[in-house]
Design a protein around this nucleic acid. Structure first.
Length: 211
DNA sequence: GAGAAGATTATCT
DNA sequence: GATAATCTTCTCC
């Protein structure tokens, strides 16, 4: 490739980008680049699938029942990462948006590795390229995102940074029901880029087996 | 302090 | 398609 990819220019996006309603920010995030820098190197992913969570008025959001120690980051300044641990083994990452005091955020569900695929492959234990970041927990694993990055500022140079990349044309953005959410599953707040192989397959929420 | 549910994934049938 | 693995967080009492 002679052309410099979006990951090459790692200029963080403006915080104003996130200081908008979550339903505006979410589709606009498709095609953007999330870069994770560690001593081992940099892994960058081009986002192909996201989900919007509208805070206290959203039954599926962690903020539905108000502010707690866990979701505090979501109530804060936009442009920060909200990382949470779930199912005893997985991390998922959100980007906080909306004005300070609004608890909305965008869950990063899937993406395509465009830099540092070798490092991502090591973290993902030799998974196929398509599956490296196909799913929210896989994306975090490929990028090495963990609890320590909760609250990280993605609008400033650092371990985790969002850059402009190449936005997906509006005509290629699709929306539909959210995946894996036990409530409000009929709300079309999931956005993905048409034709991207890295988009995760839709699955209805399956209740956990009770013992 | 105890109990239940969870924004998932890998693996087996 | 169904299920196990695994542990944090929240909600009551």
């Amino acid at each position: 490739m002679t052309e410099r990819t979006a990951a090459g220019a790692r200029t963080p996006m403006d915080r104003e980008f996130f200081d908008r309603p979550v339903l505006e920010v979410a589709p606009d995030l498709l095609g953007r680049v999330l870069s994770r820098t560690t001593p081992e190197g940099t892994v960058a992913v081009r986002l192909t699938e996201v989900e919007a969570y509208a805070g206290e008025q959203d039954p599926a959001s962690h903020c539905y029942r108000g502010r707690t120690a866990r979701n505090e980051v979501m109530f804060g300044e936009p442009g920060h990462a909200y990382v949470y641990f779930t199912y005893g083994m997985h991390f998922c990452v959100n980007l906080v948006c909306g004005p300070d005091g609004t608890a909305s955020a965008v869950l990063l569900r899937a993406g395509e590795i465009i830099e540092g695929a070798e490092q991502a492959r090591i973290r993902r234990n030799g998974s196929s390229d398509r599956d490296l970041a196909r799913g929210p927990a896989r994306l975090c694993q490929a990028l090495g995102i963990e609890r320590a990055l909760n609250g990280a500022d993605v609008c400033a140079p650092g371990e985790l940074t969002i850059s402009a990349g190449t936005p997906v044309p509006a005509g290629l953005v699709r929306s539909g029901p959210r995946t894996g959410v036990s409530s409000a599953h009929d709300t079309p707040w999931r956005f993905w880029a048409e034709g991207e192989p890295s988009v995760s397959p839709y699955r209805r929420h399956t209740p956990r087996r009770r013992g």
